[in-house]
Nucleic acid binder design. Structure first.
Length: 348
DNA sequence: TGTCCACGTCT
DNA sequence: AAGACGTGGAC
C-alpha cells in the first residue's frame, strides 16, 4: 500500500484540535494526559487535567502529594488505580532518574501504569523516538484502511496492526504521525454509525471504504454479560455527621470511602438493617427508613443498590469507620460515582 | 431502556 | 489468555 503519512500529516497540521497537552508537550504533561485519557473522553478529562497541573505542576510535587488528596483530584474519573500508579511511578522517577522521565521506551514501559500504548505516546510525542502508539482509534483506522476482519481484541491481531502502523511511520516525525492517526480516529474515522469518509485524507487509499465495509469494522469479540449484584447501603447520621467506612486496599474501588455498604447482600426490612448496625456495635436509634433504590453499572458488574437512612445517637465510630461532616466529605473523602444517589441524599 | 465508546494496564 | 478495573455521554 502507498505510504499514508504525507496525506495524513497534511490533514493533521490543518485540522488538529488545540489541546493544552499539545501546547506544551513536556514529558510530564503528555504522561498525565495519556493516563487521564485512557477510557476517558477528552471533554471529560480536560477540567481534571487543568486542576491536576495547578495543584501538582511537576513530577516531584506529584511524588510528594498526600495520597488522599490525590484520590480527591481523581474523584469522578474512575479507574483509580491509574492515579495510584501515577504516583508510584513519579516516586520511582524521582529516585532513579532525578525527577525527569527517561527518554527510553523500555524504561518508560517498566514504570507502573505505563503500558505499550502510553510508553509509545510519551516516547514519540515528547522525545521524538520512532516507536508506535496504538490505541483504539488507531486500531479502528487500520482495520478499515486494510479492510481487515481480525478481532482487534486479539493480541496477535494487534501485533500485526502495529507492524503496519510502523510501515507507514516517517522517521522524522513519529510523534506527529502517531497523534495524527489518533486524531483521525477521533474526528473523522468515527466509531459506530457512519465514518466521515468525505472528509478523510486517506479515503482514496482505504480498502474498507472501497469494499463498502468501513462501518462494519473493526470486529471485536462479543463482551461477556455483567455480573448482577445486590448491594445494601445504610446512610447513618449522627450529630457528628455521616458514617463512612474505607474500602479494602485491594480490588474494586480500592481504598475509597463509602457509607456502610454490604455487597452481595440484600437486607430485607428495617429489622435486618438494625441487626446489621448492632452487629457493628452501634447503638441504634430511630427506625431505619427505606429510600428509593438505585442502579450503578461498572464495566463488569451491575450494582442494584438498596438504600436505607437512619438517625443514630452520638457515639464512637466502629473500627475502620469515621463520622464525617458534609464539609469534610466534600474536601477530604473520595466517594466513587457508584454512590451518586447516596451523595444526593446526604446533601453533597 | 441498552449499547458503545473504551486496548489500556495489570494480574 | 482472560478477567479485573469506573465513568459519563452519545445515540
Amino acid at each position: 500500500m502507498e505510504n499514508i503519512a504525507p496525506a495524513l500529516l497534511d490533514w493533521f497540521y490543518k485540522n488538529r484540535r488545540i489541546l493544552p497537552f499539545r501546547t506544551d508537550p513536556s514529558p510530564y504533561h503528555v504522561w498525565l494526559s495519556e493516563i487521564m485519557l485512557q477510557q476517558t473522553r477528552v471533554a471529560a478529562a480536560l477540567p481534571y487535567y487543568e486542576r491536576f497541573l495547578r495543584e501538582l505542576p511537576d513530577i516531584p510535587a506529584l511524588a510528594a502529594c498526600d495520597p488522599e488528596k490525590l484520590h480527591k483530584l481523581w474523584e469522578g474519573l474512575g479507574y483509580y488505580s491509574r492515579v495510584r500508579n501515577l504516583q508510584k511511578a513519579a516516586r520511582i522517577v524521582c529516585e532513579q532518574y532525578g525527577g525527569d522521565l527517561p527518554a527510553d521506551y523500555d524504561a518508560l514501559l517498566a514504570l507502573p501504569g505505563i503500558g505499550e500504548y502510553t510508553a509509545g505516546a510519551i516516547a514519540s510525542i515528547s522525545f521524538g523516538l520512532a516507536v508506535p502508539a496504538v490505541d483504539g482509534n488507531v486500531l479502528r483506522v487500520f482495520a478499515r484502511l486494510y479492510n481487515d476482519d481480525g478481532f482487534i481484541t486479539d493480541p496477535a491481531v494487534k501485533r500485526l496492526f502495529t507492524a503496519r502502523v510502523m510501515d507507514h511511520q516517517p522517521p522524522d516525525a513519529p510523534g506527529d504521525y502517531n497523534q495524527a492517526l489518533m486524531e483521525l480516529g477521533a474526528l473523522v474515522c468515527l466509531p459506530g454509525g457512519e465514518p466521515l469518509c468525505g472528509q478523510c485524507p486517506l479515503a482514496d487509499l482505504c480498502a474498507g471504504r472501497k469494499a463498502g465495509r468501513a462501518r462494519d469494522l473493526p470486529r471485536k469479540a462479543v463482551p461477556k454479560a455483567r455480573k448482577q449484584t445486590e448491594v445494601t447501603v445504610i446512610l447513618a447520621e449522627s450529630p457528628e455527621g455521616w458514617l463512612l467506612q474505607q474500602r479494602p486496599p485491594k480490588g474494586l474501588l480500592a481504598g475509597l470511602w463509602q457509607p456502610l455498604t454490604f455487597e452481595d447482600t440484600l437486607l430485607e426490612g428495617p429489622g435486618a438493617v438494625r441487626d446489621a448496625l448492632e452487629e457493628l456495635g452501634l447503638d441504634t436509634g430511630d427506625q431505619p427508613r427505606p429510600l428509593p433504590g438505585a442502579k450503578h453499572i461498572f464495566s463488569h458488574i451491575e450494582w442494584h443498590l438498596h438504600l436505607w437512612r437512619v438517625q443514630l445517637p452520638a457515639q464512637p465510630a466502629p473500627a475502620g469507620c469515621v463520622w464525617a461532616s458534609c464539609q469534610a466529605l466534600r474536601e477530604e473523602y473520595t466517594l466513587p460515582g457508584a454512590f451518586k444517589a447516596c451523595k444526593k441524599e446526604m446533601g453533597l
